[in-house]
Design a protein around this nucleic acid. Structure first.
Lengths: 227, 227
DNA sequence: TACCTGTATAATGTCGACATTTATGACTGG
DNA sequence: CCAGTCATAAATGTCGACATTATACAGGTA
């Protein structure tokens, strides 16, 4: 249990808290406070923060410390545009390259999502949704592309986690997923790419439209609106 | 300029040395040696190495330190495939969105490259080449996409620097650039994307073909020395 | 001879303290 | 009452030392 280094475990903990939304964009990460909290010295804290900064979840400015990355609306739009293109590429390569096991896995994850919707289990749907996208990255047979896409998605995860589940959005998202999966299963690279790009674009529109109203502040995700 | 922190200056220095090829993939970065060399303690060295690791130019393994990233042939192919797609996207958006100043800048950089070739000044050509690609990223009007693309290109820069300038490759590259620039200047997004993807693919093929035969040190972590 | 093992060395991980700089706030002058 | 300046304080940057662990080498045994 003490196998990995302290700093890595601390980085993982902080990462989860940011992804979960416990730490909000703009929150400062005070080294001494974190050292007190984890009952270690500042050295492993510094290492953990530098490691986290590599994911761009947090930002570092010399002599001003670390803070959870602030994302303004322009950057948010750019990131979603990039994510759409990247996921489109993953979907395309996935449709063209995925092996039988991977296709079956994707089909099953989509079915799990459908079942979660039927049961109105939004937590299960969120997990299936994430797993489905992840499976498509994995099946694109390009680890570099997968990693890049995953990094962008992680940077946006705090927004996803909060705004994904508005009323009509889930049904829409389900249908979009259906189209992506259909294209992948019939080896339709162009179709999968286009369907995925549209899906991400609509997700982005949904999320940005929720955030735009209180755009005054540098974009901290406001309170969740789902139950 | 002694303004920024020690660690940032050290990171920049090391980054340049890796990009230039002074430090080769697999070279270990000993903290104490670097501390002695820069005449500082290990703390700023550690910070610099963590910062460099965020660019994936170097890798970190717990209790095993830092080393210049090793790139096996599979990863190299994947990175070039990703780079082709990313640069294709940048070229597309550039063709559709670049303003007059940016288009003129791109046209001028291409002309500089042509002039460098006429003068057989390979250093000037390398600079113009890099600046042209960089200008296309900048003109895509998506900073996130630009940063992602630049990161991938930097990870590959050490290979570019070594193998870009084989005999016939420069003329070929020049013609490919010509096509990309022509497409951009006539707002042809699809054409620019396709031309750029082809250009990167041929660059990759050229470099990989140089590396594959004499499978020298930079590559192959698993298949080490029995071949 | 080959392989396992134990020890010794050297590297990274961690710690506490000091130095430097930025930010905060009070005080004075206009 | 507001603006500017100086002083205090708190945070990050840097340092040297100790702790822990991986690596290498020597020694012994099958």
């Amino acid at each position: 249990m003490a196998s990995s280094t302290l700093s890595r475990k601390i980085a993982n903990t902080l990462s989860e808290e940011i992804l979960k939304g416990d730490l909000m964009p703009g929150d400062r990460l005070d080294e001494q406070s974190l050292a007190d909290r984890f009952e270690v010295s500042r050295s492993p804290i510094r290492d953990a923060l530098r490691e986290l900064a590599s994911t761009r979840l947090i930002e570092h400015q010399p002599r001003r410390g670390f803070a959870v990355a602030m994302i303004d609306t322009t950057t948010l739009r750019n990131l979603y545009e990039a994510l759409g293109e990247l996921e489109g590429l993953c979907a395309r390569y996935c449709a063209l390259r995925a092996d039988a096991v991977q296709r079956e896995h994707i089909r099953m994850l989509h079915a799990q999502g459908l079942e979660a919707i039927r049961l109105h289990d939004m937590t299960a749907y969120a997990e299936a949704n994430h797993a489905l996208h992840r499976a498509i990255y994995d099946a694109c047979h390009n680890d570099a592309l997968r990693d890049i896409t995953l990094d962008v998605r992680n940077r946006l995860s705090m927004f996803h986690a909060r705004f994904l589940f508005s009323e009509g959005r889930v049904a829409q998202s389900r249908d979009e997923h259906q189209e992506v999966v259909d294209c992948i299963l019939r080896n339709d690279g162009d179709g999968a790419s286009e369907a995925m790009k549209k899906h991400v674009a609509k997700t982005a529109l949904n999320i940005i439209s929720h955030i735009m109203p209180d755009n005054r502040k540098p974009m901290a995700p406001a309170a969740s609106d789902d139950g």
